[in-house]
Structure formats: C-alpha cells, structure tokens
C-alpha cells in the first residue's frame, strides 16, 4: 500500500529534481547575480545596485530595446497580413492545397542558420538578388544590411518569410472553424467578398490573431542568430538585439553579473508585455 502511494512521487521525481537544478536555482541565482560583479574565475564581488544603475544608463541596451520594437512593429503586422491573405486564398475550393501549404511551410522547418546565410547573399549590396532586381527595373541599390536605417527592416522581412508559413497554417485552422452558414446567410443578403471578410471572417478568427501576436512577440524578443550571423549587431548597433547584447556581455567580456542583470530585467519586460497582451485576449472573450 505504501509503495502504491509513493509511485506517483517516484514518477514525477525526475521532473522535480530537474526543475530544482535547471529552473528554480537559476532563477534565484540570477537575482543574486544582479547584485554582484563576477568574471567566473575570481571570487564574486558584492556591488549593490551598481549593475542596475549601469543598465539604466546603458545606451546599447536601450538601443537593443528600440531595435526590438522596430522589429516587432514591422514583423507582426506584415506577418498577420501576409498569413491571413494566403490562408484566405488557400481556404477557397482549390486543387493542390496540400502542395501549396507544404511549400509555404518549407522555411519554417529549415534552421534559422540556413535561412540567415541564404538571405545574407540575397541582401548583398553588389551581387545580391534583390539589388540586381532593383537595378534591372531601373531603381537604386539599397544597403539592405549596410544602411543603419534599413538593416533592422531587412531582418524583419527575412523573419517574416521564415515564419509566415506556420501562421498560414494556424489561420487556416482558424478559418475552418467559421461555420459555413454564416457566409451563406451573408450571401443571401447580398454581401460582397470584402464585406464578408471584415464582418464575418475577421471577428471570428480574432483569437487566432491574438495567438499570432503573442507567439511572434515572444519570437521577436528571442531574436539572436539572425543579427549574430548577418551583421554582428551592426552597422552602428542598428541590429543589436537584447539577447545578442546579453550574449556579448556574458561571453565576450565575461561580465556575468551585468549580463545576468540584463537578462533578468529583459525577462521582466517580456513577462509584462505578454501579460498585457493576454489581458487583452481575456477582455476580448
């Protein structure tokens, strides 16, 4: 009988052990680290609030937050518009739907490293595909990755291309939950295609839109490998992301305390933003 009562605890014990070592302890330790200066080799040194003071004066960190905002401001609307549009077309009675869906999904399954190396070539100033196309139709070249005003937009464009397939599929699932008789009733009333889209489709798939917003926000906050490979955060820090900056502070300069402070503070921002977004969703319901 005792053995029977113990069994569930035995089954969850590996999880609890793992949780303690790789989640609970790191969270507590990260808070401790924010009050210390440490390069891993010499002993930890208590520095009070120095790391926080430094963080609030850190122009590069502020820049990384602004870059994240620029990224999200382009990425989220673009992604929703493109995904919704292609999902709506896919939702018509068409042949080869499976093929098109699989084609749109291809970049989603391929490693971000591959996509970034590939787009680095497409964005090339002299020999990249985009500038060659621009020159062919008689326009000026664009410094996709070399112009500080453009580089973050370029990365957002690439990220949209990579991820939009996932959101097409999510929207397609959402669209198929809209009851067909809604559209039939609207057609009897003589509604146009546009009217049907804005009056029926859009309100019905609102939950999917919110889900896409939350997912791509979290994705945007995790941006790392794209600027790391393409630009190293440049030109002039115009593409440095928060995670890239945390990585540089920790593993280029071995500022463990400061890097942990950046990570802790950034995580709080993420939690706050996601909480606000979820509030919105609940209100909507």
């Amino acid at each position: 009988m005792l053995k029977k009562q113990l069994t569930p605890y035995l089954l969850v014990s590996p999880y609890l052990l793992h949780l303690a070592v790789f989640v609970a302890f790191p969270v507590v330790f990260s808070i401790v680290l924010t009050f210390h200066k440490w390069n891993i080799i010499s002993p930890m040194e208590y520095v009070g609030l120095t790391n926080y003071v430094r963080l609030f004066k850190d122009a590069t960190f502020l820049k990384s937050l602004i870059n994240t905002c620029i990224f999200l401001a382009i990425h989220i609307p673009l992604q929703i518009i493109v995904a919704l549009f292609l999902a709506e077309v896919l939702n018509q009675k068409i042949k080869f739907r499976g093929f098109f869906r699989a084609a749109f999904f291809l970049p989603v399954i391929v490693s971000g490293v591959v996509v970034t190396i590939l787009w680095q070539q497409l964005f090339g100033y002299d020999s990249g595909m985009f500038n060659r196309l621009l020159v062919t139709i008689g326009l000026d070249k664009i410094g996709w990755l070399t112009d500080p005003n453009v580089a973050m937009t370029s990365i957002a464009l690439m990220a949209t291309w990579k991820n939009v397939g996932l959101y097409i599929v999510l929207f397609l699932v959402g669209l198929q939950t809209v009851p067909a008789h809604y559209y039939e009733a609207a057609e009897l009333e003589g509604a146009t295609h546009t009217q049907k889209f804005f009056k029926i489709t859009l309100p019905m798939i609102n939950p999917t839109i919110f889900m896409v917003v939350i997912l791509s926000t979290i994705g945007g906050f995790s941006l790392f490998i794209e600027p790391y490979i393409m630009t190293g955060g440049g030109p002039l820090n115009s593409t440095i992301s928060a995670v890239l900056y945390i990585y540089k502070q920790g593993f280029f300069y071995y500022h463990m305390g400061y890097s942990a402070t950046l990570g802790f503070f950034f995580a709080m921002i993420i939690l706050l933003v996601v909480m606000i977004q979820k509030r919105f969703v609940e209100k909507d319901k």
Binding site: F22, P26, V27, S30, L33, A242, I246, G263, A267, L271
Partner: peptide
C-alpha cells in the same frame, strides 16, 4: 518563464 533569465545561471551550473 523567458529563457533570458536562466541563460547565465544555467551556464554557471
């Protein structure tokens, strides 16, 4: 829980 918070402590572990 965002991974950004546990990144550095996990490395130290």
């Amino acid at each position: 829980l965002p991974f950004q918070i546990t990144l550095i402590p996990q490395y130290i572990i």
